[in-house]
Design a protein around this nucleic acid. Structure first.
Length: 976
RNA sequence: GCUCGGGUGGUGGAAUUGGUAGACACGUUGGACUUAAAAUCCAAUGACUAUUGCAGUCGUGCGGGUUCAAGUCCCGCCCCGAGUACCA
């Protein structure tokens, strides 16, 4: 019934509409208006016009001297690569720009800066190939990026641009490095303290009582001993406390890049950039003592609104575990072996010990008859690539050292083995082998015929280890026998602690971050060497400028590229860099030749934006206090265990020193999903020049898949063969086997990359459809945080919407907006749109926002609305998404100022209440309703209703019913 | 192996967090207007069965369960994606 009413309404509307269409007599007028739309959406001129306007009027330049509340929206700044921007880059920038513009409408003073992370490997490799100075290519790339970014209408305040490779920026990166060098981590206050204060404590009490984070091999000394040490010895000790320090460390060495890598730059045993094999190697290296902050980095994750996966990855990376450190004596040797275990309760199941081959102690305890095999094994293990170590994880290997350890409680002799399944950099690098309680130990024991002690009563551990913590009682376990896990655990740690054999420890998986690269294109480390001891260059002489060099490769002596610099030594008398040929190492000292890693500059840039042009400070207190922390940070999830962790570490350090007002710099983080490319393939028959169309491939034949440029493909996957032959000469002699006269290519979704020929450039979309369309389309594609393949199929829908929207302001080609009170219907459409768009922006659900605009636009077109009172707020609503067209309309509506700061329309509920009572309702239990309704019913009506539906009875219970919500033939909800 | 996500039309994706599943858009089909194309507008479009009685049945990876009501909650499977890994 309702259905038919609605239907007849719709029909009436249609009739109405059709009758309004003029007959063919006055066709001349009408033709243009409806069927031949001359109204051109000239996005090219609109967009260039407004981009110039924003630039000339400095529309988006902001100051911290403002009474308005602040809002800080930040993008992860890009690395300016030579390939330029592709359609994936702007996704996050568009979202952040929408938020920035939205917040401006709401009256916030919005800080929305942009800059460039311009130090990095690709520019340097390009320099090695071409001899071009990285500074030059970087500058060109930045220029290109800026043009492309501006073309998309982002409301960045470019007056605050930062470039990490510019000396007035890296001056402060070096300054922070020196601060880290000058501090240690005090565990009694749980914060960084100056080295100065540490020296004072050494002078008065030595280091016995000091509770600080330091290297494992730090010796113990009294104040007397300290004073007796030479300057050099003192400095060596201090280095073990500094937050950036130089030490012999196991590093990830990548010979192909000639460079060490941080753990997060190694993926599956190969380098993140280039995919070259990575080896473990001992080298003297700069490191950052991020481990000192591990606990705080973990704890404060609870206080920030970051995506779950990022937090989870950081938690895993930090890898906190509660365990026990147990000491084992080595028979006939002085040395003890410390093991780390999370299961001290399985101590009576120990039948052997295993050490990581890299451990120093291995050489000392190896007996002479085993020396050869052990050394062989160590040699082999160190040569093993990290990848092999992963791949051959299942392959069990190891050798016996010939020595034995003593079980601390029952004095059994335990053979000491070495094996590469034990990692040197986790725990103590040594484990106690418990075949009954650990699967790897079990496999190892089985492989080498080592005994298994079955310590769990009720569980068979002869063929498999048992790792659960319930379902057994202990047996063969001395004092634990008969207990369950909980009691057993408590009993054993009590015993071990009282005997002084072991102690409870909190262990972290995270390692200190290697902080030096053997590269040219990075921040110079402001350190010189005196007697081999690193000495800081006083911060007043910063920046330490990166010198020009001619060759970007390592020196013949194997020094980093900076060794090629003519001027590169520090003169302590004149406080300057001096030329090599004049070097007299009595007065001048060699400068550190390594440079900082890529993440140095990006670890604090968000603070610099608050006061980017300050020459006196890294940022003024006033600016920092006004802009505070980042309210919304948008960037890729790939930085979860790199940039996003290091920058939190630096922020905490700066906060410890009182230099920044917050422990966490970004309260809210959103990860934008990657936009993937769709690569295209042609299929060449093996050893021929014959290319076969995709659907004609013979399963019995072998084909080579060859990636080709996606520009050569039509929307129906047809290949333009002529263009292909022009593109690469190898195809010129090709014979193409066609289907239906066409060559159809294969397609596959992959990461967008220049080398895969699947890059789609935003420039060509801008040219064809305009920036506003691109912005809205990228938002419309799907949820912001989801990875999705780029696909232009739907772009016309968004473009049509903008055209339609513009058409609302026109009638018969003429600008036509009326200033009469709008209809109820029109108001309802407007307020529905305001409500939905606002709600969705607040939820960062931009794709549904775009839908809401389309719905509103369609309805208003149908209503033929030209009311100013409707269209004006709608334009404001749209302006964060499509700023150019909004500005254009805004100006045409007679406004002098930019729409950017126009108050946002706030919806009022009264237009949104559904008039459900219009529809007739019948309570005979069989009628159907077409709408969900909220009804205020009288008692009689309710009773009638209840009689019609027995199910309701159970709800009655004597209570009065206030409201009943009904859907077709069903009672939905009852409010008592 | 472990830890997170996620499976909805031909496609991208909606669903106010338990209340008419498929909004919006693409695509497809038909129509209007055109010499024609483009552009624009209108209509249909989950599947099946009916159809000059206007309706019915089934449908959110599979199998169970809770509920008046399940895409949404619970239990058990299957698949896909991401991260991570001899972590003791």
């Amino acid at each position: 019934m309702i259905g038919s009413i609605l239907k007849s309404k719709a029909e009436a509307k249609l009739r109405d509409f059709k009758s309004s269409i003029p007959s063919s007599k006055d066709f001349n007028n009408f033709k243009f208006a409806l069927y031949f739309h001359p109204l051109k959406y000239d996005f090219q001129s609109i967009e260039t016009k407004w981009e110039r306007y924003w630039k000339e009027n400095k529309t988006f330049q902001v100051s911290h001297e403002s009474k308005k509340p602040k809002y800080y929206v930040l993008d992860m700044f890009p690395y300016p690569s030579g390939a330029g921007l592709h359609v994936g880059h702007p996704l996050g920038y568009i979202a952040s720009d929408i938020i920035a513009r939205y917040k401006r409408h709401l009256g916030f003073n919005v800080l929305h800066p942009q800059g460039f992370d311009s130090f990095g490997l690709p520019a340097e490799q390009y320099a090695i190939q071409t001899g071009q100075h990285p500074a030059k290519t970087t500058k060109e790339n930045i220029q290109r990026y800026k043009e492309q970014l501006n073309r998309l209408g982002f409301s960045f305040d470019w007056s605050r641009e930062v470039q990490t490779s510019s000396p007035n920026y890296y001056k402060w990166t070096q300054w922070i490095f020196l601060l880290l060098f000058d501090h240690y981590y005090d565990l009694s206050n749980d914060k960084a303290q100056s080295i100065e204060s540490l020296i004072q404590q050494f002078n008065t009490q030595g280091n016995e009582q000091i509770h600080a984070v330091c290297n494992e091999d730090t010796p113990r000394f009294t104040n007397q001993q300290w004073k007796s040490y030479t300057w050099k010895k003192q400095q060596e000790i201090l280095l073990k406390y500094r937050l950036t320090y130089l030490s012999e460390a196991d590093v990830n060495w990548c010979p192909d890049l000639g460079c060490v890598l941080a753990n997060d730059e190694v993926i599956d045993g190969v380098s993140e950039r280039g995919g070259y094999p990575v080896f473990r190697k001992k080298m003297k290296q700069w490191s950052m003592r991020i481990t000192a902050y591990a606990k705080r980095l973990l704890k404060d994750l609870d206080h920030i609104d970051w995506p779950g996966p990022v937090k989870e990855m950081q938690r895993n990376w930090i890898g906190q575990s509660q365990g026990f450190r147990i000491q084992f004596q080595v028979l006939h040797h002085q040395e003890n072996i410390n093991v780390y275990t999370t299961r001290p309760d399985t101590l009576f199941g120990v039948t052997f010990m295993t050490l990581a081959p890299e451990l120093d102690i291995v050489k000392q305890i190896t007996t002479s008859e085993n020396k050869l095999v052990v050394e062989n094994y160590i040699e082999k293990a160190s040569k093993k690539r990290m990848l092999d170590r992963l791949v051959h994880a299942k392959k069990i290997s190891g050798v016996f050292t010939g020595s034995f350890a003593l079980h601390p409680l029952n004095n059994q002799k335990l053979p000491i083995w070495i094996s590469d399944y034990v990692l040197a950099d986790y725990g103590t690098g040594a484990i106690m082998g418990v075949p009954a309680g650990d699967q790897r130990d079990h496999a190892f024991a089985t492989h080498f015929n080592l005994p298994i002690v079955h310590i769990f009563e009720g569980v068979d551990t002869s063929s498999e280890a048992f790792v659960d913590k319930e379902g057994f009682t202990y047996q063969n376990s001395d004092l634990l026998n008969g207990m369950a896990f909980k009691d057993g655990y408590a009993t054993i740690i009590d015993r071990l602690e009282s005997d002084g054999i072991g102690k409870q420890v909190t262990h972290f998986k995270i390692n200190d971050a290697v902080f030096a690269r053997q590269r040219y294109w990075g921040e110079p480390i402001p350190i010189y060497y005196n007697e081999g001891i690193p000495v800081p260059i006083d911060s007043q002489y910063l920046p330490l400028i990166l010198p020009d060099i001619e060759k970007y490769l390592p020196t013949p002596q194997g020094d980093p590229p900076l060794g090629n610099a003519k001027k590169w030594a520090w003169d302590t008398h004149h406080h300057r860099i001096v030329a090599n040929d004049l070097i007299d190492f009595k007065t001048v000292f060699p400068i550190e030749l390594n440079t900082m890693p890529g993440w140095a500059g990006s670890s604090w840039y968000f603070n610099r934006y608050t006061d980017a042009n300050n020459c006196q400070e890294f940022a003024s207190q006033k600016a920092l206090d006004y802009w505070k922390e980042v309210d919304l940070y948008i960037g890729g999830v790939e930085h979860a265990t790199g940039h996003l962790l290091y920058s939190r570490f630096w922020q905490k350090f700066l906060a410890d020193l009182g230099l920044v007002p917050f422990q966490e710099y970004a309260t809210k983080l959103i990860n934008q999903g990657m936009i993937l490319g769709t690569s295209a393939f042609v299929y060449r028959q093996k050893d021929t020049q014959v290319y076969v169309s995709k659907n004609l491939l013979d399963p019995k034949e072998t084909y080579h898949q060859i990636r080709i440029e996606v520009d050569l493909i039509s929307s129906s996957n047809e290949l333009n063969i002529e263009k292909l032959k022009e593109w690469q000469p190898q195809f010129q002699d090709g014979k193409f086997v066609l289907e239906n006269g066409k060559y159809i290519v294969g397609r596959e979704v992959e990461k967008m990359s220049k080398s895969k020929f699947n890059v789609v450039n935003p420039d060509q979309i801008c040219h064809e459809y305009g920036a506003d369309t691109l912005r809205m389309y990228e938002m419309f594609l799907g949820p912001i945080d989801q990875a999705k393949p780029w696909n232009t199929a739907g772009i016309s829908g968004v473009h049509n919407f903008l055209k339609k929207f513009l058409r609302l302001f026109y009638k018969n080609q003429e600008w036509f907006v009326i200033d009469h009170p709008p209809h109820q219907e029109e108001l309802k459409v407007l307020h529905q749109a305001i409500k939905n768009v606002t709600r969705d922006i607040e939820r960062y659900s931009f794709n549904t926002c775009v839908s809401s605009f389309m719905i509103a636009c369609n309805k208003l077109t149908e209503l033929r609305c030209h009311s100013l009172e409707i269209l004006k707020p709608l334009t404001v609503l749209l302006s964060p998404f499509a700023p150019h067209i909004a500005e254009e309309i805004w100006e045409k509506l007679g406004n002098q100022h930019s729409i950017a700061y126009e108050p946002y329309p706030i919806h009022s509920e009264e237009y949104l209440i559904e008039n459900t009572k219009e529809y007739p309702i019948s309570f005979n239990g069989k009628k159907r309703f077409t709408k969900t309704m909220e009804l205020n019913l009288s008692k009689d009506e309710i009773e009638h209703l209840i009689l019609s539906d027995a199910r309701l009875e159970k709800y009655l219970d004597g209570k009065p019913i206030k409201k009943i919500i009904i859907v077709p033939n069903k009672i939905v909800n009852i409010v008592l």
